[in-house]
Amino acid sequence: MHDKILLSHGEGGKRTRDLIAKVILRYFDNPVLSPFLDSGLLGRIGGEIAFTTDGYVVTPPFFPGGDIGRLAVCGTVNDLAVCGAKAVAISCGLILEEGLPVESLERALAAMRDAAKEAGVTVACGDTKVVERGKGDGIFITTAGVGVAVDGWRPAPSEIRPGDRILLTGTMGDHQVAVLIARRNLDIEAPVLSDVAPLSGLLLPLLPRFAGRIRFMRDPTRGGVGVTLNEMASAANARFVLDEARLPVRESVRGVCEILGFDPLYLANEGKAVLIAAGEAAEAIVASLREHPYGREAAIIGEVQEGGSGVRMRTLAGGVRAVDYPVGDQLPRIC
């Protein structure tokens, strides 16, 4: 085996076979994938099926607290989980750049294997392509996921009503700040780890218990909690009011945001969910979330109020202001 990815690893010949047999299958050895057919045969799946896909192009691919492999599994598992579905099988599409160290590929594959194991999902099929040097960024991964929905629960934004509470399963912005620091062009050192994690174990057990009272869930990835809540509020045609004092932000993340002029509300998360739940059940749901390692800092961050739609925030200073969509990337302040 070579120590770098070559164009011939993607040409379908012997080297492609070698790469698959000697590297990839070492990490994904399972009865669905290993027969090496053109499709993974999943057998009969009982229940309502959910299906999703996502592409992962994070730079750098390895960052404090995670890497592109873990991200590629968790992102898809979480998209299924917030729709109330347990991931059953995912695909793994690799787009590798000529010259990528095989060691880096193996690190990403090991992380995918571990995350898949944690989430109880089978990597059922895959594809490998190699692009010329300069035409990629080391490694891109796409995953699609098939999940089976928890009986009796469906996302129901239309059921959201005044008095409902807005819940967040933990601190905001950890992922994006960890990646920004890893890019190293900011010259900031802070002990921030990405929160990338599969949320199925945190969220799905709650659904049978709080069926009907958990109305709607989303994972606040790109655009952060601010954008996700705006989308949820327009889906529900509801007015959300956040409480600035209750927004969970790690001190180290807040420090970085202070220096760079970022608002943690708009920073990406990869291991968090926003839930809208009936007021009377909110405390019990938070208590349950906090029992799980990925929900220790869960909090009620706001409520649904009468009148209009959109997102507002009660500030620490005692005022109220709009929380809108940001325009463009958040950039560091210049004065």
Binding site: D263, M313, R314, T315, L316, A317, G318, G319, V320, R321
Partner: peptide, 9 residues
């Protein structure tokens, strides 16, 4: 001032 909602206060 805008982020803190101070003007209306």
């Amino acid at each position: 001032i805008a982020r803190g909602g101070i003007r209306p206060l």
